[in-house]
């Protein structure tokens, strides 16, 4: 019994194989390769050269016409070069402090804290930052501390603070540097960048530029 059914199965498989041979001869495999795979590889190579090479070269050439030749905006102060778009760690009392950073303002990397809003450990960190700020700025009321000064930025390289966050540090700067509050206020105002066209987006102060101006003022 079993050998008969085994034989008939074999026969069926053979027939199937034979029909497959006929079909595959009608449309040989290398034809599918010819119509799709080889053109796909060749098209990949030419478009790769075009979009990775030619397009990149065009943009590189355009960037050479831009102010800093595509190297990022820099400012040179006492022979030292700084990138104006990248924030720096400013924790000393004589400087306007920048925001907290998850990467310590080292632009070898970038990123935020990624702490969720309800994370208890994170909320303790924020509370500690508030306490530290009040310790360094005893003349400031807690309700005047702008929230961005006690939170970390998304990139960890935020170059800016809001004008409010600069003003809240005014008294400390004046006290530590022994200059009049009026002068410090004038510096903040001179370094405040208005919203785009005066009406789009937030106003901001570049902390690096402000601190350079502060060092020059004395």
């Amino acid at each position: 019994m079993s050998s008969v059914s085994g034989f008939s199965r074999l026969k069926r498989v053979t027939i199937k194989y034979k029909t497959w041979l006929v079909v595959s001869r009608r449309q040989p495999k290398n034809k599918a390769m010819k119509t799709n795979l080889f053109p796909a590889i060749k098209l990949t190579v030419v478009t790769l050269i075009f979009f990775s090479g030619v397009y990149t070269a065009i943009i590189w050439a355009v960037a050479q016409l831009a102010p800093n030749h595509g190297n990022g905006e820099v400012v040179v102060q006492h022979g030292k070069k700084y990138y104006t778009n990248l924030g720096q760690t400013f924790t000393e009392d004589k400087y306007f402090n920048s925001r907290s950073s998850a990467v310590d303002y080292n632009a070898a990397g970038s990123g935020g804290s990624n702490k969720g809003p309800s994370n208890p450990e994170y909320l303790q960190t924020v509370q500690a930052r508030i306490d530290t700020f009040l310790l360094h700025n005893p003349e400031v009321k807690k309700s005047d501390i702008p929230v961005e000064l006690v939170t970390a930025s998304g990139s960890g390289l935020d170059p800016d603070i809001s004008p409010k966050a600069a003003l809240v540090q005014l008294k400390r700067i004046a006290r530590t540097r022994n200059i009049s509050e009026k002068n410090v206020q004038a510096l903040i105002e001179a370094n405040t960048e208005a919203p785009l066209l005066g009406l789009l987006g937030p106003a901001k102060v570049n902390v690096l530029k402000l601190n350079i101006a502060l060092d020059q003022a004395k």
Binding site: K142, I145, D160, K164, G201
Partner: peptide
Amino acid sequence: VDMSAGAMEGKETR
């Protein structure tokens, strides 16, 4: 603290 800037954790000032 002064919350007028909004939820600034993970956000950029500019």
